[in-house]
């Protein structure tokens, strides 16, 4: 039986571990959030709007587009269709977690809601060490990431103009994070078929559909190829 003391020890370990895992996202979300906050404030919205948008929408690239949609007065239905196109990539993220999140009890709905690109990448690569409650760590990482985004947005809307240094280029931290996670997964996986399949579909789709529309066809093609691969393997097994 676990004593109360080991339980407290585990909680502290879990909190520290989750925070450590979320630090790479901190930089990016804080400053991208600030950029968003500044934009929405310049468009004439109160800081409370920035807060609630980041609380309820919580989707980076979409929120930047949102500012443009609002200032241009685009109708509500068109905004919905744009959202579907921009955030459609999320449809594919959940597939990796359908069997995991549903065993997370009260955390389940929030985990689904907060599955951004960055949180997805961190959670995919997560390896909880001894003495860390993995499910709780996943939840805490999701909460930390979300709170960085909200904090950034609010700070940006309040004080964006007064960032004491030139933060141009800080958005590269997201690129760097994806690169690092890509390398980690590359090293871990015995087969590189999946990574290469994604890369090939991505490059082909970039070429065919252009920078603004490439991500959905790329993901769709990747999934199709994986289904074909799976069926082929099943046939061979029989």
């Amino acid at each position: 039986m676990k004593t109360l003391q080991t339980k407290i020890y585990n909680n502290k370990n879990t909190l520290l571990f989750a925070f450590e895992q979320s630090i790479p996202v901190l930089l990016g979300y804080l400053f991208l959030g600030m950029a968003f906050g500044l934009m929405i404030q310049k468009a004439g919205y109160h800081v409370l709007w920035a807060f609630f948008m980041s609380l309820f929408i919580y989707a980076g690239s979409m929120q930047f587009l949102l500012v443009a949609l609002l200032t241009a007065g685009v109708d509500v239905l068109t905004c919905g269709i744009m959202t579907l196109l921009i955030n459609g990539r999320h449809l594919f993220y959940g597939l990796s977690f359908v069997n995991i999140f549903k065993h997370m009890g009260k955390y389940y709905p929030y985990m689904v809601f907060s599955l951004t690109d960055e949180t997805y990448s961190i959670l995919c690569a997560l390896k909880a060490p001894e003495g860390v409650n993995e499910k709780k760590a996943m939840f805490l990482i999701a909460i930390f990431d979300h709170s960085y985004w909200i904090m950034g947005s609010v700070l940006g809307a309040l004080t964006g103009q007064f960032i004491p240094f030139n933060s141009n280029g800080i958005e590269f931290s997201m690129t760097a994070l994806f690169l690092v996670i890509f390398m980690n997964q590359w090293k871990e996986m015995k087969s590189h078929k999946a990574a290469l399949c994604g890369l090939a579909c991505g490059i082909l789709s970039l070429y065919l559909f252009g920078a603004d529309k490439f991500i959905l066809p790329a993901l769709f093609a990747t999934v199709c190829l994986m289904v074909v691969y799976y069926i082929q393997n099943q046939k061979r097994g029989k």
């Binding site: 594919f92 990796s96 069997n99 990448s121 997964q185 999946a194 994604g198 890369l199 490059i203 799976y230």
Partner: peptide, 18 residues
């Protein structure tokens, strides 16, 4: 199966996205 195999492919596409 797809859920297990997708992550490296998605990360690769996210790198391209950047």
């Amino acid at each position: 199966f797809i859920g297990r195999t997708l992550p490296p492919a998605i990360i690769a596409i996210l790198v391209l996205y950047c």
